[in-house]
Design a protein around this nucleic acid. Structure first.
Lengths: 197, 197
DNA sequence: CCAAGAATCTTGACAATGTCTAAATCGGTG
DNA sequence: CACCGATTTAGACATTGTCAAGATTCTTGG
């Protein structure tokens, strides 16, 4: 009856493993993440997670999907209230960088190059969903005549790449989180007006 | 006398470990990299590498330094012959992406977030050296009046971030290497002329 | 209602790995 | 030439991912 009673069946082990894995990732990084450790933390036998995740890689794949879903939510929230295009881009980039700063290990898992064939499609879907909102920003800008013409996909890649690159620099410590806010605004400004004089 | 005779002392084990580690990284990825495996490949006892690399992390740090040195050389070579600013940027980005495509695992090691305090300085130095040439590109462009004014460091970060982000997308498979060449030119073009209309 | 059958979980085992310690070997220096 | 530090070896240990076999619970069809 009580929540704490020990049942043979956990109830929702899969979700619990994912939740705990994200915690470990955020608090202790990727190498600290072990299936056995998670099982221990959840008070479950060491092989229990294997019923829900074939591999350790399968867990990483699931973490990547969950990560892109959450990143998408964060960016949606950041773009709930709208201002000028520049302001919106800054808000979007800021949300992205906050996410990267708070979950650096998760971000590197999300962009790891070892997703299985099957989950690759699921991840691609989550990626598309996550990046839909920021890309829409640019198409709307084009509709208002504020953004240069051209395939919005292409223009979007440039913006996303710049932000993702900045996130990598922050995550690897070459740029401190304190610097990142200023840099972010400079990057958006540079993107907006271009390099050529 | 011959090279293949088995000596107790290897001669230059440290360099041999680094070389082999890079090979494994390129051919089989990061999880396939094991200290014992490398020792086995070199015909040396399993604990021999520990004399040259305290940790597995110390090996990763050394790999990161070597990686940035090589990346710097690659970019220097790409910028040996110069053309227009746009051509130079494309050449630089192309070299960067080729490096990223050929050594995706190494690149993620280079931008990993777990470098030890001591080697952090050495890595930062290698990073600065590697990115010196592309940054100089922009200062020269400013001198010729082809590039907008402003702190070249700041402008450089935008360019580097965009390329690095694109490299991440390629490395994680969201962009195929075939697409990357075209995208690269589009990204440079977008950077040059900006988003605002 | 209840008897399969599927899903979930446990226990036990195995090979591999990173790391530590003590001992053996080698190279150079006084 | 003896000695000392650097290098390498051998052995051991805890930890981990994964597999196989069995126990327990849930579900579902008859």
């Amino acid at each position: 009856m009580t929540e704490t009673m020990t049942r043979y069946h956990h109830g929702d082990l899969r979700a619990a493993v994912l939740r705990r894995a994200e915690e470990v990732l955020r608090e202790s990084g990727t190498d600290a993440l072990s299936l056995r450790g998670i099982a221990r933390d959840l008070g479950v036998s060491h092989a229990a997670p294997s019923a829900h995740f074939r591999d350790k890689n399968a867990l990483f794949d699931a973490l990547a999907v969950a990560g892109f879903r959450r990143l998408g939510e964060v960016m949606d929230a950041a773009l709930a209230t709208r201002g000028s295009l520049t302001d919106d881009l800054v808000a979007f980039a800021s949300a992205y960088l906050d996410f990267a700063t708070d979950n650096p290990a998760l971000l590197s898992v999300m962009f790891a190059r070892k997703h299985s064939e099957t989950s690759g499609a699921e991840i691609a879907e989550a990626v598309a969903a996550a990046f839909a909102h920021p890309t829409a920003l640019l198409t709307e800008g084009q509709a208002r005549g504020e953004v240069v013409d051209g395939d919005p996909e292409v223009i979007g890649v440039t913006v996303l790449a710049a932000i993702q690159g900045l996130a990598t620099f922050v995550g690897s410590g070459f740029v401190t989180p304190e610097q990142s806010q200023g840099m972010l605004e400079d990057v958006v400004a540079t993107l907006m007006r271009g390099l050529a004089r």
